[in-house]
Design a protein around this nucleic acid. Sequence first.
DNA 1: GTCTATAGCCTGATAGAC
DNA 2: GTCTATCAGGCTATAGAC
Lengths: 196, 196
Amino acid sequence: MQASPDTRITILDRSIPLYAAKGYSGVSMRDIARAVSISPAALYHHFPNKQALYLAAMERAFADKALTITATVRSEGTALQRLENFIERFTRLMADDPDFRMLLQRELLDGDQQRLRLLVDRVFAEPFTAVSELALELAPDCDPHLMTISLAGLVLFHFEAAPLRQFLPGMRAEHDQPEVIARHIARLMTRALESR
Amino acid sequence: MQASPDTRITILDRSIPLYAAKGYSGVSMRDIARAVSISPAALYHHFPNKQALYLAAMERAFADKALTITATVRSEGTALQRLENFIERFTRLMADDPDFRMLLQRELLDGDQQRLRLLVDRVFAEPFTAVSELALELAPDCDPHLMTISLAGLVLFHFEAAPLRQFLPGMRAEHDQPEVIARHIARLMTRALESR
DNA sequence: GTCTATAGCCTGATAGAC
DNA sequence: GTCTATCAGGCTATAGAC
């Protein structure tokens, strides 16, 4: 740690939305320097090169993002109730932090082994395990790994596809609201999983 | 059209995998020229600038991609059978053409209005409508637009998340096989939608 | 239709003053 | 810790010969 870590943190916080919007190769050191109102050279006092700055920005963007998700899945209540709570929380996380969501999408496309492992360790390992256990409880005859991936995709893709949806038939403004999305998914999953 | 459109088409076919792997700003005109074994200057005989080359590559990568999907959804059989056939076809499309899938993911992040509309017109308008009609038939009480988005995300995310899955608990090699993914999704949706 | 050469700008990164 | 100045190289795009 430095004597004044403020600048370092400011650099990270200003570069996160830039990288989310335009990706690693779409954002130059000059772009970041401009956003922080310092000279490009000053960035190299805080980070050895562009890659290290980017990696530090990812670490910060991803840190502890999923704590509430894990807690929600492991809280009290019936399995179905916990599933619904998870869907609602995860949907709201995606809606409330579009930078996080877009960085995730970009890392799935461009992340190397090191960064993907960071993503798992920092964000997804715990909630993934928790949801897998919940899935096993709800549908013992289904593969919990596949089921957890399905649940995540079900939520994430509604946001991922948002830019396309405006051109697709049947689109309505309320389809952008996280509550509407969560309710739709919860109903779908409830139908699939409730005891019959 | 030119007297010899071969070079133009070669340029597009070689640039598609490059753009899929590294994105618009990650691929230079020099990269493309190298892949086609011509000089960078020669590219400008076939396309006025980099943007136009990229747009033409997208048009080619997306052309008629979903014809078989639409036909599958509108073929004969019970609604549930057509749903299962759609899931299987769409899963195989994603598995067989990773360039198309990654370009789609990139366009969802970076596409401007013009390119997103192209994507809808060239690829998704027809199958989306067909699947929406099928969804309305299977679940009249659900919003067909939301349901179609859900179905697409359910399939797509299994491939999107593949680079991350290797680090997630419960992963098995067979989870990469399109047949396994399709069967999992089909069972999930059948449970949710079959008359009860 | 393709080449070589190059203009003009942007890139990541460094040197050295303060 | 930040600055100005700068380097070496990559970038898109063009000029003009063949």
